[in-house]
C-alpha cells in the first residue's frame, strides 16, 4: 500500500500543482502549474523528488496534514511558521514527518504562494499529461478543485528519507518588474507609456491563480479596448476598458479580446505574483532579446541551486 497524505485543516486556496500542462493551448486548455515555478522546483528537490513531481500549492495560508508512513516534507515560497508534532521547523529545508505526526503550515510573510512538497510526490491521476489543478474548468489535481479537510491524497513511494538543505542560497533581487512591450503596444499613446513606466502600481486583492488586477494610473488605449481575440500568454498585461491592467498568471485563459500593452518577462513573473497586495512597484521596459537572456541566466541560477541540495550533515553555505 503506497503512503497517503490526509488533509486535517485546509487553507483558502490549496491545490495540487506541478510544472504545468503543455501542448493543449491550441485546444483552449490553460497550462496551469505552480504560480512560482522556482519555489515549487526547490520544494520538490528538497523533498528528494524528481523534477515535475506534484506538490501542494497554497495561497497565503497553509493548513495541517498527516501521513500514514514516514515521509520527507519541505515548505518553500516564503517564510512562515511551520510545526511538526508541535515543534517549530524551518522553511526551505526538508524534515521527516513520521507516520501519524501532524505538519502545520501557517501564514506566509511577505509572500503570497507557498509550496508543500512531500517525498514521492502527490500521486493523483494525471489529466492531459499533468496533475496540475485548473479550478475554472475543474481539470486535474483532486477532482479539479481546491483541497479541503478530510481529503486523502495518494503519494508516490519515496526514494530516500534523508533531510536536505540548499547548499547555496536562493534569492531574488528587488528591482522594477521587467516587461517586454507589446503585442498591442501601438494601442497606447506616448503619455500612457510614460505613466506605465514611471508611476507606481500595486497588486490589488482581486487576484487568484488566473489573473491579478493592478491599481495605478488608468491606461487608456486610443485605438479602443477591443481587439479581435488572439492568443494570450502567462504574463500578458491586458488592459480592459476600465484602464486597470490585468496580469495573466498560471491559470490564464488561452485567448482574449483586450489589448495587451506588455508582457512580464518570464523570469520576473514569480516576483510579481509573490508581491503582497497594496505594495508599490514600478515597471521597466526591456527588449525581447534581453528578456530571453535574463530567462536563460535565471534558469541556470535555479539549476545551480537545485544542484546544490545536500544532506543536512554537510556544511551549509551560511555557516562559518
Amino acid at each position: 500500500m503506497s503512503p497517503r497524505l490526509s488533509i486535517v485543516r485546509h487553507g483558502p486556496l490549496m491545490t495540487v500543482q506541478d510544472q504545468g500542462r503543455y501542448g493543449y493551448r491550441s485546444r483552449g486548455v490553460s497550462t496551469s502549474g505552480a504560480m512560482d515555478r522556482d519555489a515549487y522546483a526547490i520544494a520538490n528537490a528538497l523533498a528528494g523528488n524528481k523534477p515535475g513531481a506534484a506538490a501542494i500549492e497554497f495561497g497565503l495560508i497553509g493548513g495541517s496534514m498527516t501521513t500514514d508512513k514516514d515521509v520527507l516534507v519541505a515548505v518553500t515560497g516564503g517564510n512562515c511558521k511551520i510545526e511538526i508534532a508541535g515543534k517549530p521547523v524551518a522553511a526551505w529545508e526538508s524534515h521527516i514527518l513520521q507516520a501519524g505526526e501532524t505538519l502545520t503550515v501557517g501564514a506566509l510573510q511577505g509572500a503570497v504562494w507557498g509550496y508543500i512538497a512531500v517525498s514521492g510526490g502527490i500521486a493523483t491521476s494525471p489529466m492531459l499529461g499533468s496533475r496540475s489543478t485548473h479550478l475554472r474548468t475543474g481539470v486535474g489535481g483532486m477532482d479539479g478543485r481546491t483541497l479541503t479537510a478530510g481529503d486523502v491524497l495518494p503519494l508516490g513511494e519515496p526514494d530516500m528519507l534523508t533531510p536536505l538543505v540548499l547548499g547555496q542560497p536562493y534569492f531574488r533581487r528587488p528591482h522594477p518588474i521587467l516587461v517586454v512591450p507589446g503585442p498591442q503596444n501601438d494601442y497606447f499613446e506616448e503619455a500612457v507609456w510614460r505613466d506605465f513606466l514611471t508611476r507606481p502600481f500595486q497588486v490589488t486583492t482581486s487576484r487568484d491563480r488566473m489573473a491579478m488586477v493592478l491599481n495605478g494610473p488608468p491606461l487608456r488605449a486610443f485605438k479602443g479596448h477591443d481587439i479581435v481575440s488572439d492568443a494570450t500568454v502567462v504574463g500578458s498585461i491586458q488592459v480592459p476598458g476600465s484602464g486597470k491592467p490585468i496580469v495573466l498568471t498560471a491559470d490564464a485563459q488561452t485567448t482574449g479580446g483586450y489589448p495587451k500593452i506588455a508582457t512580464v518577462a518570464s523570469f520576473d513573473l514569480a516576483r510579481l505574483t509573490q508581491m503582497p497586495s497594496s505594495q508599490n512597484f514600478a515597471f521597466r521596459a526591456i527588449s525581447p532579446d534581453t528578456a530571453e537572456e535574463l530567462f536563460i541566466a535565471a534558469q541556470e541560477r535555479l539549476e545551480a541551486v537545485l544542484g546544490s541540495v545536500c544532506s543536512k550533515t554537510k556544511k551549509r553555505f551560511w555557516e562559518p
Binding site: 517586454v180 503585442p183 492568443a231 495587451k260 508582457t263 518570464s266 523570469f267 525581447p288 530567462f295
Partner: peptide, 15 residues
C-alpha cells in the same frame, strides 16, 4: 509581434 520572451506571433490581418 512579440509576447514577451517565450512567444512570438505572426499576424495576417487586424480583422
Amino acid at each position: 509581434v512579440r509576447s514577451g520572451d517565450q512567444a512570438v506571433s505572426i499576424e495576417f490581418s487586424d480583422s
